[in-house]
């Protein structure tokens, strides 16, 4: 890896940030009212809520997050693996797809348990 590869990325980040700041400045200059409208009741059709909507959200797809996490970890191995398949040969392919097969079995189990249906 070459540090010069990252130079443009960093420069781009600075550039976009500057662009966004500029956009906000233009917005402030052009908008008919510089002060923001404050303490607006949140919208749900006209009538305000009875409590603060900030709440511990009922995440019914929680089991899916667990399955996802398992696969997400797997992806960490799969990225570097793509680079060495040719060198390492058959064993690399066998190992990776055995691993994936095991994970897929887990998906099958989760499916049977109804983890992917929540309504």
């Amino acid at each position: 890896m070459d540090t010069s590869d990252w130079q443009p990325v960093l420069l781009l980040l600075v550039l976009i940030s500057a662009g966004l700041v500029l956009l906000y400045v233009i917005g402030a200059a052009l908008s008919v009212e510089r002060e923001p409208l404050c303490d607006v009741p949140p919208f749900s059709g006209g009538l305000g809520p009875e409590e603060h909507p900030f709440s511990r959200f009922h995440v019914r797809w929680y089991p899916v997050t667990m399955v996802f996490l398992a696969f997400d970890m797997e992806m960490l191995f799969m990225y570097p693996w793509t680079k060495v398949v040719g060198e390492v040969g058959t064993s690399a392919v066998v190992e990776m797809f055995l691993f994936l097969g095991i994970l897929l079995a887990g998906v099958g189990y989760a499916w049977r348990e109804g983890a992917f249906r929540w309504s």
Binding site: S44, G46, P53
Partner: peptide, 18 residues
Amino acid sequence: DRDGLRLDRLHVPLGPAL
């Protein structure tokens, strides 16, 4: 909740101008 968990419950009037 219906699964027997105790969870936050919000009371929201929905409408009339959705």
